[in-house]
């Protein structure tokens, strides 16, 4: 009874989100986590600095953090960096949207149609473990040396984990959720849209996040290998290699990392938090 009363009051004060003490504790623990991180990364930077300064390796193999930062500023100022990021981001957008659409439909088909699961199921599992950059050589022949080939590689990277996530999300739905939906009159496409997809959102998001990471890797590899494409971020890396400019290569790697991390932290993580909170308690 005490528990139900406390839940009632939580619900009644939900505009306040958290009580002051709760918010305080949370803020303090977050501050501590950030403090730890700051310490860790500055030690790492100091170590790198020390190694570079020690002269054990030449500066062309291990440039100092300052040289990398300078190189980053230089490619930024030269007008190469921003268009390259824009090009890569645009490819990701297009490829990822296609992957989402195809992966979702494939996942629903796998979950709901036994014949599809028995035939395509193992294929999907198999293809998931294939590095999608393997598709680049055939794709260049099939689609020509253009955008379509690199989009194909992105889709081949992202689509499987999205499909798997949708499949296992739908499969692990509480049976009562389905019966309730059925009882209320949800069938066919409306069952998919109003019930199956939102119900699987937590699993779906995990798959989306994974798919995004695979797609980003695939794109970088594709841009690195294919010289006929409009230059993206991956291409800057191969330019660094051509001029044997280690500082530039490391600077580009930092950009690639930062982009992937930014999307993960600014888009997927907040989404996952909201969903986990709301979906978490009521399992059935």
């Amino acid at each position: 009874m005490a528990e139900s009363i406390s839940r009632i009051s939580t619900a009644a004060n939900r505009e306040q989100a958290q009580s002051e003490t709760e918010a305080g504790v949370l803020r303090r623990s977050q501050r501590r986590a950030w403090g730890g991180r700051l310490l860790f990364f500055s030690s790492l930077l100091a170590l790198w600095w020390g190694l570079a300064a020690s002269g054990v390796w030449s500066a062309s193999l291990l440039p100092s953090p300052a040289a990398v930062a300078a190189s980053l500023a230089e490619i930024g100022a030269s007008g190469l960096l921003l268009p390259a990021i824009a090009t890569s981001a645009q490819r990701m957008m297009i490829g990822y949207v296609i992957s989402l659409a195809v992966g979702t439909m494939l996942g629903l088909a796998l979950a709901q149609v036994r014949a599809v699961d028995e035939t395509l199921g193992p294929v999907v599992t198999g293809l998931q473990s294939l590095p999608s950059i393997s598709w680049l050589p055939p794709a260049l022949l099939w689609f020509g040396a253009g955008e379509a080939a690199v989009l194909f590689v992105i889709v081949m990277g992202a689509v499987w984990s999205i499909a798997q996530a949708v499949r296992s999300g739908v499969r692990s739905l509480p049976p009562l959720t389905l019966r309730a939906a059925q009882m209320l009159g949800a069938h066919g496409p409306r069952l998919w849209w109003h019930v199956l997809l939102p119900a699987t959102l937590p699993t779906f998001l995990t798959g989306m996040r994974l798919g995004w990471a695979f797609a980003w890797r695939a794109l970088m590899a594709g841009e690195l290998l294919s010289r006929s494409l409009r230059p993206g971020v991956g291409r800057l890396l191969s330019q660094g290699r051509d001029t044997q400019d280690m500082a530039m290569m490391l600077a580009v790697i930092v950009v690639i990392l930062a982009f992937g991390l930014a999307v993960d932290r600014l888009l997927f993580l907040p989404l996952e938090r909201v969903v986990a909170r709301r979906w978490g308690v009521e399992g059935a």
Binding site: P174, L176, T177, R179, A180, M183, L184, G185, A186, R190, H194, V195, P198, A199, L201, R278, W279, V281, E282, A284
Partner: peptide, 24 residues
């Protein structure tokens, strides 16, 4: 039907859960 567990949809508010059948 009312089941042993409420089986409400966690992504909808209480009102929207109740209204879902009418929406359909």
């Amino acid at each position: 039907i009312v089941f042993q567990e409420a089986a409400l949809f966690p992504w909808r508010t209480v009102l929207d859960n109740v209204a879902f059948g009418l929406q359909l």
